[in-house]
Amino acid sequence: MQQVINVFLIGISIGSIYALMSLALVLVWRSTRVVNFAQAGQAIVTTYIAWEVVNRSGSFLMAFILAVAIGGLIGGLVESGMMRTLFKHASDGPVAAVAPVIATLGLLGVIRALVGLIWTNEGKRFESPVSTAGFVIGDTTLPFSRLNLLIIFTAAFVMIVFSIVFQRTNLGLALRAAAYNPEIARLSGVKVSMTRTIGWVFAGAAGAVAGILLSPNDSLTPYSLDVLFVFGFVAAVIGGLESLVGAVVGGLVLGVGLSFITFYLGTSLVFPTAFIVLVVVLLVRPSGLFGVKGARSA
């Protein structure tokens, strides 16, 4: 029983990171109907910057704040610089339908290459700000550590901030209205081109948090967040891709599920399981657990 609780808590910890990536993908999807394949790439940049700051100043908090700010900035720049040009030229040609996917993939490639050029492809060790040794109760050492606790609290904090912004502020109302129906939002005076950029800014910030939470106590390379993107995507699809709450729940469910698989069946089954979950959700309940029906064909 104690072990089950342990595995569950580890799952919540990793799941809250997936949830943040999933949140980032959903924010972008809601604002511009694009799945940003470069989301993890943007997070790689901010994570490397955080690594650099931690190495030079030793302050994890400063690294965190800087990473989030730069993450938001990159998101905004990508939307206003690249995506806007893309939509301006968009037509209904064969490539136009897949152009956003290709453009964000291209961006991912550029980011990785630049990161590799600056920091090389060799793995960097990202020291954890807190102890990664498990808590000790009596004479048993749990796998659950201070780092896991920090991850859960940080992710929860970010999610609470998001939910306050979205549910309680004018900006949040404008963002939601623009996501559900851009035309009515514009007719009500909402500057939708601005809410789009803000959606990307928020997504960039959320992705930056995910990257910085995943990397401590692990090796950081230009490719080390690829898996985070895929799990974030699976979580977003479980949640329906439209719903912020769904994104978070999807991430937690996936994290806990995969944690049990890792512990009882082995690491090598994690990826196949995630893929099967993705395909099953898409085939059986394409609108996700929280999605609106008929929203999938965009």
Binding site: H89, G93, V95, I102, G106, G109, V110, A113
Partner: peptide
Amino acid sequence: AVTANFPGLITSLLLILTVLFTPNG
């Protein structure tokens, strides 16, 4: 670092420029 990343940089930049400026290929 340059050998490993330069090709990716060039091809990815080409990819972006292609979809941005010739949306139909």
